[in-house]
C-alpha cells in the first residue's frame, strides 16, 4: 500500500506538457472523486442501518463521512490553488465543482453539528443516517442548480479547454486515482478500528469497575 502511494507521488508529476499547473490535476481530481465516493459510502451504510437496523453501520457511516469531509476540504484547498494557478484568483464562483464542494462542505459540517448535539443512542444513529441520505440526494440536485445558476450569475460562459489526455497522462491520472482511493481506504480502516477499539475499551472499563 505504501509502495503504491510512493510510486504514485513520484510517477504522477512526470509529464507537464500543458504547463506545470496541469500537475495539480493529478491530485485535485482524484481527491474530489474520492470525496464523492466517501459520501456515497456513508450514505450506503446509512441506508443499511435504516434498512437492517445493524448498529455497526452507524460508526461506519460516520467514519466514511468524516473521511469525505476531510477529502472535501482538501478538494477545496487544492481547487483554490488550481484556480490561482490557471486563472490568477484564489476563488472563482464560475467553477461549478468548487462551488458544489463548498455547499457539500457546509452540509457535512452541519452533519457533525447534528451528531454532536444529539444524545448517543439509536435515535442519534438514525437521525444521522437520514441526514447522510439527504446528502447524496443533495449532490446531484445542487450540481444541477449550480449549473443553472451560472446562467444568471455569469452570463458569459466560462470556457475551459477540455484537456486532451495522452496515454501517459491518463495512466498517471488512473494511478494517482487508485493511490488516493487506497489512501482513503486505509485511513478509513484505521479510523474505524480506532473508534471500535475506543468503544470496546469503554465497555471493558465498565465491566471491570
Amino acid at each position: 500500500m505504501g509502495l503504491a502511494l510512493i510510486l504514485a507521488l513520484i510517477v504522477a508529476p512526470e509529464d507537464a506538457d500543458q504547463g506545470i499547473s496541469q500537475r495539480i490535476f493529478y491530485i485535485h481530481v482524484p481527491i474530489a472523486l474520492t470525496a464523492y465516493f466517501c459520501f456515497g459510502l456513508g450514505a450506503w451504510k446509512a441506508l443499511l442501518l435504516l434498512w437492517r437496523g445493524d448498529e455497526r453501520n452507524d460508526l461506519e457511516s460516520y467514519v466514511a463521512i468524516h473521511q469525505g469531509t476531510i477529502f472535501g476540504a482538501l478538494t477545496l484547498i487544492t481547487g483554490s490553488i488550481w484556480a490561482r494557478a490557471s486563472w490568477g484568483v484564489w476563488w472563482t464562483w464560475s467553477s461549478n465543482q468548487l462551488v458544489l464542494f463548498l455547499v457539500l462542505f457546509l452540509f457535512y459540517c452541519a452533519y457533525f453539528m447534528l451528531r454532536f448535539s444529539l444524545e448517543e443512542g439509536a435515535r442519534r444513529a438514525r437521525s444521522s443516517a437520514v441526514y447522510a441520505l439527504f446528502g447524496v440526494v443533495l449532490i446531484p440536485i445542487s450540481f444541477l442548480a449550480i449549473r443553472l445558476a451560472d446562467d444568471f450569475i455569469h452570463p458569459t460562459v466560462f470556457v475551459r479547454e477540455g484537456p486532451q489526455m495522452t496515454g501517459t497522462m491518463f495512466a498517471t491520472f488512473c494511478l494517482s486515482w487508485a493511490a488516493v482511493t487506497l489512501l482513503a481506504y486505509v485511513l478509513y480502516r484505521v479510523e474505524l478500528a480506532g473508534k471500535r477499539l475506543d468503544a470496546d475499551l469503554r465497555e471493558l472499563r465498565e465491566v471491570l469497575q
Binding site: 499547473s21 495539480i24 481527491i31 487544492t78
Partner: peptide, 23 residues
C-alpha cells in the same frame, strides 16, 4: 506556477501528516 503545484501537493501531504499524528 511551480510553487503553486508544490503548495497543492504540500497541503495534501500536511493534511495526511496531521491526520496520522492525530491517529
Amino acid at each position: 506556477q511551480a510553487e503553486l503545484v508544490a503548495a497543492a501537493y504540500g497541503v495534501v501531504f500536511v493534511f495526511v501528516l496531521v491526520y496520522v499524528a492525530i491517529i
